[in-house]
Design a protein around this nucleic acid. Structure first.
Ligand SMILES: [Mn+2]
Ligand SMILES: [Mn+2]
Ligand SMILES: [Mn+2]
Ligand SMILES: [Mn+2]
Lengths: 228, 228
DNA sequence: CACGTATATTAGGCATTCCTAAACTTGAGA
DNA sequence: TCTCAAGTTTAGGAATGCCTAATATACGTG
């Protein structure tokens, strides 16, 4: 009803559900119970129950057996959490010596505990950055967000030179592996070889070649235009 | 049983109960249900129930109708929270431009969300301070804490000059009032007058006199030895 | 020592958030 | 069109953490 409703105090669970559903609805397509359950590491029945409650709260619309879709209120609450999460990550790297593989777990808890003023003080201390340490764009306070078009490293044409834009933040080991090879946002890579049948790609970074499996090459997103 | 038990994940509620009971047991004397309920703004039956659970968890000993007393495990968990709380307050003042009246509410939430490594990074950034912005001593990681003996401003002898050591942190308005008059830790005050029958005291700070009501003068703690 | 009040506990209930097992719906393929 | 597997929901239950109302205890006072 009240689209601009200020969700005075959503619980940690509710906030994480909204964030998950936001993440699973790139073009506003409804998110499935199964995918939400998988992302949050919960059972499908738990998700069914919560989705029902959130729809009663006006945070999402639910068509049984079809999926859940955020309302404007839900989307704005989700973006508020995404902003917090990414600014906290940036702050921890910039001011507390964290490495990019350790910040996600910390932010996942802190995002629910910080106040709005604290988030804005961190943003100011950082000079209002536009992306977090993984290259993910940071939504503005009004909920606007600039997603840059990007191509998975797995899909870059052979011979093409591209700039890495963002990397999936969730697996610390994967992040350490990538960082050790210069595969970080801003890094420039040239795709040298691609093996058929979903085989690995060979990339060149700062003159060094690395063979990267498909699964990994799918979570490294690159600028879709060549960067030279 | 396991005295050095690492409380792997106490809930926010449990952590706040332990902190409250620690605060209410200055010399290890048991804390009453009533006092715990008052400090946490909960009903006495809620406290009775939680105290029973915490004693089953080995975090405190409870003699029904008499009171609750922390075990070593409970005390160490409480001190861990106190360390977090006070370091967070110090960090917010030092690095994020917070004033001393705003940090308590923020720390009350953040203390449950930070990781041990983050707390230690904040401590290092601060140069391992010994007191927080309110003058409260910061326990070491091993749980040791140096409480300095102190006298309430309300009890300082007339004519005496003392240094302010610590101020109760809980009421932001009170903290602003005190700061505006120079009544902050490290501030030097001379007690000029005391009205009888629990009347106000007159103090001199940096050449200016202020009349301070008894209730207020009781939460301002001063060095028990003269400082000058 | 009995009484009454302050304090504490027990009884019973509700909201939240999770679970497993059972029942239901959907839709793709036989 | 029928079948059935995958996916979803409902049913039922547990833990946490809070509440109010009722009951029990402790202790100072007469
Ligand atoms: Mn989270
Ligand atoms: Mn990130
Ligand atoms: Mn707290
Ligand atoms: Mn403090």
């Amino acid at each position: 009803m009240n689209v601009t409703a200020h969700p005075d105090s959503l619980t940690r669970s509710v906030e994480d559900y909204l964030k998950a559903i936001y993440r699973l609805s790139p073009e506003g397509r409804p998110a499935s119970t199964r995918d939400i359950a998988h992302l949050l590491e919960l059972s499908p029945p738990s998700v069914s129950g919560m989705v029902k409650r959130l729809s009663e709260l006006g945070l999402l619309e639910h068509i049984p057996y079809r999926g859940a879709q955020l309302t404007e209120a839900g989307r704005s609450a989700a973006l508020r959490m995404v902003r917090r999460h990414r600014l906290i990550e940036a702050y921890l790297v910039e001011f507390l010596g964290y490495s990019w593989d350790a910040v996600h777990a910390e932010a996942e808890r802190l995002e629910h505990a910080v106040s709005d003023p604290l988030v804005e003080r961190m943003a100011a201390a950082l000079g209002h950055p536009s992306v977090d340490p993984h290259g993910d764009p940071i939504p503005a306070t009004d909920g606007s967000i600039h997603e840059l078009a990007s191509t998975a490293l797995a899909d870059v044409a052979t011979g093409r030179t591209v700039e890495i834009r963002r990397v999936d933040e969730r697996d610390p080991e994967r992040l350490r592996y990538l960082a050790a090879r210069g595969l970080v946002p801003g890094g420039v890579v040239t795709l040298r070889d691609r093996q058929p049948f979903g085989g690995p790609v060979t990339v060149e970074v700062a003159g060094v070649r690395h063979v990267i499996g498909t699964e990994l090459a799918r979570v490294v997103l690159c600028g879709s235009e060549e960067t030279q």
